[in-house]
Computed example of a mutant assay.
Amino acid sequence: MKAAILKKFGAPLIVEHVPMPAIGTGEVIVDVVAAPMVSYARDVFSGARNYPLPTPVIPGLGGIGRVREAGPDATHLNIGDWVFCDPTVRSRDDALMPDIALQGWSARGKGGAKLQTYHRDGTFAEQVRIPTECAIPIGHIDASNASRWSALSVLTIAYGGLVALDFRPGETLLVNGATGNFGSATVQVALAMGARCVVAVGRNETVLEDLRRRFGERLVPVRLSEDASTAAMQAATQNPIDAVLDFLPPHVPATVARAAVMSVRPYGRVVLMGGVGMLGGEDLALPYPWIMRNNITIRGQWMYEAKSVTTLIGLIRVGLLDLEQFEVAEFGIDRINEAVSHAFRHAGPFRLTVTTM
């Protein structure tokens, strides 16, 4: 099969023919049709992000394809079924604290690294071998729409945060970092779930205006400045802020995240999914008395629960979540390095760069 290989960090991907993956029990072979290229892939492949990705490797973070072969423990999958290749691989020997690896991309901790030694190669190839539970049926689609369905790779992360928040119809949500890929996707998904109002906080005024144009009066934009305050965020809407989802990137100071967290009402919930503090800087430093006396719930969330993908697909299938919001640029696998550059240059909300096979 044809695959794009990262032989070493700092070198371009090389497309060549490699052996097809061999199936094992508890696994599925998928014919990849479309695989998304994230905007920061250039920094991963250059080594700038210092990702724990062993080389040589076939990278690729999830995708859309059709089942070629399923193992003996698969009871619902059939040959030819369209599936989302979920890159979030979880260890099966500890249901309480499973280790996680992002297949073809990254891993968390020693357990994740061990998992990654086996579930190593990703979706920048004509076929990929994935755990059975990571082949998630999406129903029949036209092959020409496979690239657009790659938006699941972004939408699932946004939806995972909302599920972690226990977000409910009729509530008001504040999205901190709403002008980024994941933040803007969270806006779309929350409104599809029946949000009364979404307060979209971000620095990019053009993107905020675009969000308002796309989603109407239930979207309340708040431009983020260096002196952004909790009071300003609360004043943006007449409704108490029931929940806060933070997607701020690593370079933003903790004070900005703190202002958003503290905008939540008493008995409110907060989920942190961004990268604040990963490049150093001060801690979040939330006041103990405020959390305790106001019964605030704060939790972190990395990725999403496996079952969340299926319910998100349901939102798409009934027409509540519109994939047509996404602008798609396609590159065949022979143009994989062009796709890397394009994804970096054209990063932004509702923009997909996709590698096709």
Rank of each mutant, 00 (worst) to 15 (best):
L162Y: 09
P87I: 10
A101I: 04
G80I: 12
G60H: 07
R148Q: 13
E133P: 01
G63K: 11
V89E: 04
P98A: 14
P98G: 11
L61G: 00
T156D: 08
R108W: 13
S144N: 13
K114A: 14
L155T: 04
P52W: 13
R66A: 02
E126Q: 14
G65E: 07
N50G: 14
D121F: 02
P52Y: 13
S150W: 02
F124P: 02
P56I: 10
G80H: 11
C134M: 07
D73L: 12
R68D: 10
L115E: 07
T172M: 04
R148N: 06
G177I: 08
N176F: 01
T75L: 10
C85Q: 12
T123G: 06
A95E: 12
T156Y: 02
L61N: 10
I130F: 01
A70W: 03
W149M: 04
C85H: 05
A146G: 04
Q103T: 06
P137N: 08
T132Q: 12
G80V: 11
T75P: 00
G139E: 08
A113Y: 05
G139A: 09
P98R: 14
S147Y: 05
R120Q: 12
K110Q: 14
R148A: 04
S144Y: 08
A74S: 15
I141S: 02
D86C: 08
P52I: 11
L115R: 06
A74N: 13
